[in-house]
């Protein structure tokens, strides 16, 4: 889709806002200055990214399935959670739906992991 850089009429924006635009469809809305802070990706974020790519490649879910989960999380999740927090939630939801493991198995494992130690490093199985 190509936008030509002309302003969108406010009346059109209002119309689309009341005709079913979902929260993630942000193009053309008002917003503040672009925040320029960046960060280097941490190991856990890189692992989430790798899980997303590999599970997609293995046919366990599609990019559309991921997007559906991300969009259904809603705007509150977008504001409160970091990017890869939302992604691991979406990956997990799709994997549970695909039958890769059960929610019960996930819950038990997360509980077990909490007991391993207070930091990400110490919580690894081999940590």
């Amino acid at each position: 889709m190509v936008w030509t850089g002309r302003a969108v009429l406010p009346s059109l924006l209002t119309m689309s806002d009341t005709t079913g635009r979902r929260w993630h469809d942000m193009g053309g809305q008002d917003a503040g200055p672009v925040p320029m802070d960046g960060h280097d990706f941490t190991l856990w974020e890189k692992r989430v990214d790798a899980l997303m790519v590999l599970c997609g490649q293995k046919g366990l879910f599609t990019v559309d399935g991921l997007r559906r989960a991300l969009e259904d999380m809603g705007e509150d999740a977008f504001e409160r959670m970091s990017y890869y927090e939302r992604w691991i939630a979406a990956v997990n939801q799709n994997l549970v739906e695909a039958g890769a493991y059960t929610l019960e198995e996930l819950g038990e494992r997360m509980h077990e992991i909490a007991a391993r130690g207070p930091t990400y490093g110490e919580a690894q199985a081999d940590g």
Binding site: L51, S82, I88, A89, L95, R109, M110, I113, A123
Partner: peptide
């Protein structure tokens, strides 16, 4: 919480 979920998902997979 989300880091724990990542570890759990990775281990289960």
């Amino acid at each position: 919480y989300w880091q724990r979920m990542e570890i759990a998902v990775r281990e289960l997979m």
